[in-house]
Amino acid sequence: MEQSDSLDIESLKVTQERFVLASQSLHLQRPACDAAACPVGLYGWRKRCLYFFLLLLLVTMIVNLALTVWIIKVMKFSVDGMGGLRLNNDGIRLEGVSEFLLPLYVNEIQSRRDSSLVLRSEKNITLNARNGRGQMTGQLTVGPDAVEAQCQRLAVRSSDGGRLLFTADDGEVIMATEKFTVTGSEGAVFGHSVETPQIRARPSEDLRLESPTRTLSMEAPRGVEVSAAKGPLQVRGRKDLRLESTDGEILLDATSIQLGHLPLGVFTTTAGRASQEQPAYEVCVCPSGKLYLSPAERASTCQAMSSICLWS
């Protein structure tokens, strides 16, 4: 019993001594070390990686700066605009060839005073006009095959903009020029009636009015005048040629009037008495209006009951 108590006391003393030593070691100051003995910073592969990234960043900045300067030089950036584009107080000015990939909305397109305005397209050029609601009121399309205009009224004016030259709408087409010239070898083809005060050919060319499959009719409220100042005047028809005046007369004014291929009538009832070598004939008119020739005598030899008139 006494030995166990002595052992417990000795173990307690040893434990107290260790606790005292441990507490004293905590209050002791560590000896100071100089910079050579205790280095601070990145060393080894970490330092080399940091320098590499800094160098890469510097190279990237230099390349970006060079590309920026090159783009500014190539695109010609300035305070007023870039390249051929200039921003003015009254709008935008483009110099040289410009290409638009999307629709262009403008109020006015004007060229320079010393050059013309040229619009080019690989397919076609379409100009649209819209009202305040966005509805299309007019369209002009210039294509490879035709030029089409869709509008309520198409008008063409002179260079000064004062005189109207051509206008077209749903009801009629008006040409207000003093002279309308057709230079085609086949002339002009009209599917319906044509109203004009005068039709005249050039001085060195012939005037020809022709209807190959239908009739040709010329009408006027105060008369129709057909004249040839120099050269012959020929009127031909496959079937009937009709000259009609409802209130007036038909005047044929010329130095000589020739009516070819008129039938020859017989003065007497006996055909043998009609001379085949008659030097002169007179022109007779049947009640139906048909013309025929009759041998000329001292008196008129025209007969209303002639065989020509009876069988006409």
Rank of each mutant, 00 (worst) to 15 (best):
Q198G: 02
H261E: 14
K239C: 06
R242L: 12
F267G: 03
T269F: 05
L243F: 13
R200L: 13
F267L: 07
A254R: 02
G231L: 03
G237L: 01
V189D: 12
E249V: 13
E186N: 10
T183I: 05
L251K: 03
T255P: 10
S217D: 09
E225S: 09
K230W: 06
S211M: 02
F190L: 06
P263T: 00
G231N: 04
A201E: 01
V235W: 02
P221V: 08
L233W: 08
G248F: 03
L216I: 06
R202Y: 10
E244F: 15
S256G: 12
T246E: 13
K239H: 10
P263V: 00
D247P: 00
A188D: 00
S185F: 02
L262G: 10
R222F: 08
P221S: 08
L251H: 04
L241A: 04
L243E: 05
L233C: 10
V182M: 11
T268A: 15
S256A: 14
R242E: 07
G265A: 13
V182H: 09
R238C: 03
G260D: 14
A201Q: 06
K230Q: 15
I199G: 02
E186S: 08
G187Y: 07
A201L: 07
T215W: 04
G187T: 08
R214F: 02
R214A: 08
T213A: 14
M218N: 01
